[in-house]
Design a protein around this nucleic acid. Sequence first.
DNA 1: ACTTCGACCTGTTGGC
DNA 2: TGCCAACAGGTCGAAG
Length: 272
Amino acid sequence: MPELPEVETTLRGIEPHIKHQKIVHVTVRHYGLRWPIPRDIGETLKNQVVEDISRRGKYLLFKTKAGTFILHLGMSGRLRILDEDVPFKKHDHVDILFGNHKVLRFTDPRRFGALLWTPDEVSEHVLLKNLGPEPLTGAFSGKYLWGKSRGRKAPVKSFIMDSKVVVGVGNIYAAEALFAAKIPPKLAAGKLTEARYDALAVEIKKILKSAIKQGGTTLKDFSNSEGKPGYFSVHLKVYGRCGLPCENCGTALKEIRLGQRSTVYCPKCQSK
DNA sequence: ACTTCGACCTGTTGGC
DNA sequence: TGCCAACAGGTCGAAG
């Protein structure tokens, strides 16, 4: 489900309920996520206090004195804050109970998510250490993208979805940002000019920021929200609109496959 | 160093 | 209506 804005919204939603709270108990009902949840995660986390929660790309990082647990929502995952007596349902794989009697519940039908533990510096973790810059920081710019893309033949859409290039740009917002910047998704990344990457970086930042902002206003109290940030966010102009008229020019939007992902674009506005 | 492709899962959708 | 194939917002790791 989530792209970066949804993960960020989740972070902001759960943080006030669990920051500085002590973990009292962990219930794992299904260890088989993308990677197995460590069997001793309950032992490891018991009595630890969550000192801080942060995000790196789409990974949520829960820091304790003993180490950090890393949580990824995969494609269909979500987190909710619930009262401890709320019964679990089919895909509710993990409950983390806190001293304030709140439960952080992880639900994930497809089980592409992950829950891992590291006692070490989390930025050195194998899943995090090679990630590209955060898109909403100064390190991410048109100049950066341009430099990074020299010699690359992959389509620009695949390029910006590569987490080693930049984190947090998923299929939906990649398509939307390319539309906004008027760039054909399948152009070879290495062929774009710096000016076009400037425009693209601006649009990526814009769309992510606006989605985060909407997420924040949509969901004021996370504990009552059913934890469904969803695609609340921005009005989508191309994603999921194949065959419908382009909002700029009226041309029917087209769909192609790029890197096994569906890709919608306007054949006129994004023609070269 | 870069690209492509299979893999991990279940639920939903669209075509016949 | 029922069945089955294809597909879904992620992303890693193997192989080319």
